[in-house]
């Protein structure tokens, strides 16, 4: 049972959180202006790196705030942004 640090509530067990996938995938400014392929990339495609990965989490059982955290997908360990080198 891993601990995840909520920026507001501090470290809590992982079951209090829900996962939101890759962070910083912005909703396109003008969806209508995109080609079908560009739109499909936005809707269906996400990165899957081996290593640090910026993700969205929500403290679902706590303050319900969404936040971004960087997790190393090789170790599941959360890393502070300063530790991210690649």
């Amino acid at each position: 049972m891993q601990l995840i640090s909520c920026p507001w509530c501090g470290p809590r067990e992982e079951v209090e959180f829900s996962y939101g996938g890759q962070a910083a995938v912005a909703y396109p400014e003008h969806p209508a202006a995109l080609t079908d392929e560009q739109w499909a990339r936005f809707v269906f495609f996400r990165d899957n790196p081996k290593g640090p990965f910026a993700e969205r989490w929500v403290h679902a059982a706590g303050c319900r705030r969404w936040f971004t955290a960087v997790r190393d997908t090789r170790t599941h360990r959360f890393v502070s942004p300063s530790e991210v080198t690649s």
Binding site: S18, G20, A23, A26, Y27, R56, V58, A60, R64, R65, W66
Partner: peptide
């Protein structure tokens, strides 16, 4: 109910 609220919050808080 919970999923809809979470999703609405996600739009509001992150987008």
């Amino acid at each position: 109910a919970a999923a809809v609220l979470d999703s609405m919050e996600e739009w509001l808080q992150t987008e």
